[in-house]
Design a protein around this nucleic acid. Structure first.
Lengths: 190, 190, 190, 190
DNA sequence: TATGAATGAGCATTCATTCAT
DNA sequence: AATGAATGAATGCTCATTCAT
C-alpha cells in the first residue's frame, strides 16, 4: 500500500526529528526512534539507507518547508520597509511555531553533517533575500553593506531571540516580535 | 616538576577543546584527545575525574576568559554610545580571535550539560550588560525594550556574523566590525 | 521462536556459572562468557540488564534448585534420626552432583553481592531446618544447643568434605556419605 | 637501614591483608594498599615482584603462623580426647582472634592462586593431625574412617561456625566453643 | 514488506606496572 | 632506596546495522 509506506516513512521522520531536537543526534538511538514511531528497528532501514541518510532527509524536509514559507511572504510589489517587516515577522513566527524543527536544524548544523551542508543551504536560502537587500541598497533605503552583514543584522537577532524564547528566557508575543523587527530595520536602513 | 604537570593538564584541555569544537562532545573519543595531547589515555584521568569533568573545566576556563575580557572593555565614565561601540567591537574581536573557544561554547550549550549551565551563565554574563542597557534607557538614548530584546538586537548579529566569519562566508576586518556594531547601535538606540 | 530465546538465555547462564565457578566473578570477562555460550557479547545484554543482574539471576536459580530439592527430602512423619540421615545424605549428593553450582554459590557469597544476600538466604534456608532441629530438641533426641551450632555441626562437615571431594582429595561414594552423615548425627544427637 | 626495610615490607603486607580480607583480591588496587601502608605505589615493587607475589607471601605468612600455633597446642602425652578438645578449641580461638587472616585465607583459596596451593597446604597441615587421628584409631577411641573424613567432621564445624561468628550470625564465647568441640568429638569418637 | 534478535566495533574508564627523578 | 606520574591493555556496556523469519 502506497499510503501505508508514506505513513511509516513520515512517522519515522517525525519521531526522529522530535527526539533529536530533544536529545541531540548522539543521544537518540535508532531503537528509540523506532519505538516512538511505532515500528520495528529494522523498518527504518527499509526507508533510509542508514541513520545519516535519515538525518539528511529530515533536514532537507524541514529546510524546504522553511524556505517555501519564507518565499511566500515576500511580495516584490511592496515597498522595501514593508517587505522587511513582513518577511522577518513571518520568519520569526514560523520559527516560534516550529520549535522541534528549529531545534533539529540547530543540532544538525552543529553536527559534522551540517558543516558541509551549511554553506550550500545558506547560498540557496540567500537567493531571495539577496535580491531583496540588493533592491533596498539600489533604492538607497538600505545601508550599503555586504549582503552577509545585512543578513546578520536582520536574521541574527531573530535567531538569537527565538532560541531565548524556546529556552523560556523571554516570551515573544506579537507586539514584541513587531518591536524586534522594527528595531532591526533601524540597523539595516540607511 | 610543577611545570610538567601544568603542561600536561593544559595540553589535554587544549586538545579536548579543539576536537570538541570540531567534532562535538560525543564525536570526540578520549583516545583521540590523548593522541592529540601527546599523552596516554590513562593520563587524562589523573587530571580530570572523567570526561564530563574535563569539559566542565574547559567551559569554566573559556567562560571566565570571555567574561573578564568583556568586563574590562566597559568604562562607566564613557557615554552610552561610545561604550556600546567599545563593548561589542571588543567582544566581536575576542570571538574572532578565539574560534575554537567559541565553537566549544556553542557545542557545550547544545549538549545536555549546557542546558542547566546556560541559564546560570547567561544571568551572570548579563549582569554588567543589564546595568549598561538600563543606564541607556534611563538616559533615553536606548529604546525602552526588555533587556533580553536589547541583548538579542546587539549580540545576535555579532554571534551570527562571527559564525559566518569562521565558516568563511564573510571576512570580518576592523572596518566591517565597526560597520556592524555601528549598525546594531541603530537598532538599540532611540 | 520461544525455544531459541530460552536456549540462548540458558546458554549464557550456564557459561557464566561455569566460568565464575572456575575463575570467580572478577576473573570472568563478559567476552569470555559470550564466547563459551557461543553468542556475541551484546546478546548478554538482551537477556540481562548487566553483569550484576546476570549473576543475581544465576544465584536465584541455583539457590532455588537447592532449596526445593532439600525441602522435598524432609518428611515430618519420620523419626528425627531417619530424617536427619535422609536430609543430609540427599544434600551431600545434591552438592556432589552439582559441582559448578556449589562453586558458584561459594564465589557469590564471597563477593560484595553475597554479603547482603547471605543473611537473607540463610534465614530462608534455615526455616525448615530450624523447625526440624527444634523438634529434635523437644523430643530430647538432639543436644540442646543453639540452632546455628547444630547447623555448623551438621552442615559444616558436609560442605568441607564436598569441597575436598571436588578438589580430588577424597572420593565420596555412597558408603562414605552414609558414614559421614551417621558420624555427624553423633555430634548433634543427645 | 635494615629495620626500615622490614618495617615497610611488613606495613605493605598488613595493609594488603586487611584490605583484601575486606574487599577481596580484585577489589583492592595496589594504590589503595600503598596508601594504607603509608608508602608510594612504586615501593611495593621494591619488596615484591608483583601483586601476585605479594599475595603469595602474605598467604605463606598467615599460613605459617596458623600451623605453628596449632602445632604447639598438640601434646602427645595427653589422652586422645583431651588432645582433641585442646587442639580444636585452640584452633577455633585462633581463628576468631585473627579475623583478617582468616578472611584473607578464604579469599586466597577462592582465587585462582589458591587452587594449586591448596592441595600442597592441606597435605602439610594435615601431617600432625594425620598422626593424631592415626593414634586415635589405633587406640580404638576414634572411628575407623579415612583421615580426610575425620578432618571434615572435626574441622568442618569449626570453619563453618567461625565464619558465622565473623558474619555476626552467632557469638562464639568460650562455653559455646567448648560445646562445639565436645559435640564434634562425639562425631569422630568411636 | 516488516520485524526484532543478534551482532561486534567502539567507547569511557580502571589499574598493575614501569621508570625518570 | 623511594616515589608517583605516566602508561595502555583490558573490561563492561551501547547501539547502528544486518538478516532469518
Amino acid at each position: 500500500m502506497e499510503k501505508q509506506q508514506t505513513d511509516k516513512r513520515a512517522a519515522i521522520m517525525q519521531a526522529a526529528m522530535e527526539l533529536i531536537a530533544e536529545q541531540g543526534f548522539h543521544g537518540t538511538p535508532t531503537s528509540q526512534i523506532a519505538q516512538r514511531a511505532g515500528i520495528g528497528v529494522g523498518t527504518i532501514y527499509r526507508y533510509f539507507k542508514d541513520k545519516d541518510a535519515l538525518i539528511e532527509v529530515i533536514h532537507e524536509n524541514v529546510h524546504g518547508t522553511f524556505i517555501s514559507t519564507f518565499t511566500e511572504s515576500y511580495d516584490p510589489q511592496l515597498p522595501v520597509r514593508e517587505n522587511y517587516l513582513r518577511i522577518f515577522s513571518t520568519l520569526t513566527r514560523l520559527f516560534i511555531a516550529n520549535p522541534y524543527e528549529i531545534k533539529f536544524i540547530e543540532q544538525f548544523y552543529n553536527s559534522p553533517y551540517g558543516i558541509a551542508k551549511k554553506r550550500a543551504d545558506e547560498i540557496e536560502c540567500d537567493k531571495p533575500l539577496f535580491a531583496f537587500f540588493g533592491q533596498g541598497i539600489q533604492q538607497q533605503v538600505v545601508k550599503d553593506l555586504p549582503f552577509e552583514i545585512l543578513l546578520g543584522l536582520s536574521l541574527g537577532p531573530v535567531l538569537f531571540l527565538v532560541r531565548d524564547h524556546q529556552n523560556g528566557f523571554v516570551n515573544l508575543n506579537d507586539q514584541l516580535i513587531a518591536d524586534i523587527v522594527s528595531a532591526s530595520w533601524d540597523a539595516v536602513k540607511r
